[in-house]
Amino acid sequence: MGNRFVRLCQSIGAPLTARIIKLGFACRFLLGILRHSPAAFARPQLLAREIWFAGVLSILIITVSGLFVGMVLALQGYDTLQRFGASSSLGILVALSLVRELGPVVGALLFASRAGSAITAEIGLMKATEQLSAMEMMAVNPMARVIAPKFWGGVISMPLLAAMFSATGIFGGYLIGVPLLGLDEGSFWSQMQGAVDFRLDVMNGVIKSVFFGCAIALIAAFEGYDAPPTAEGISTATTRTVVTSALVVLALDFVLTAFMFRGV
């Protein structure tokens, strides 16, 4: 009986300890990134390349998805709203859901699978082919030269992409609402403008996406850096980036929403 209990503790404890060790390593990793960030910002070219890599290459998927999400929101929302004779509030529905939630969250999920996985794969591959090690031996710190710029490239790109997602989404909602469903254009925009507050809704959405950007960029860079230097190791790490990012984004979204819109 006692033996079995010990074994049970061990079977729970061993993976738990491994997770905690990994978390501790991730914290140390984040501190390392922050310590080497000034060096990364001192070289805008490096940062530009990473913004291109994480941000520019994600524009297409973000804007196209945003457009479709906005259009679907408008179709679904119209169906529900018109039962209550409130179809003129469609603009409010589309804009608020996009700006507050869908822009930052769906944008972050897409960003994690497009850019996050690419960051993990690139860092993992550089590690597996000893490029990071070679850099170290050439007296160049890979933390400052590779990891920190990639991290900040992701952090900077995320809020811009989320804003693009919301903007194209609202435009998609407009396309469905006004030309297709025949709502009045003036009331569509004015009602929306009356109900959406810049500081409370738009800026809170931007703040959310900054948090998501930090989380995804950290997870992606860390998983790549921590990946076993094999083909299998890199592919698992890439998958883990997407899964962990998605979970962390959704959990973080709940916490941030609870803070931001409490009692309003």
Binding site: A163, V196, F198, D201
Partner: peptide, 11 residues
């Protein structure tokens, strides 16, 4: 996009 959200979408 941010400007659009600030000027056209929100008050």
């Amino acid at each position: 996009a941010l400007l659009f959200l600030a000027l056209k979408v929100s008050n």
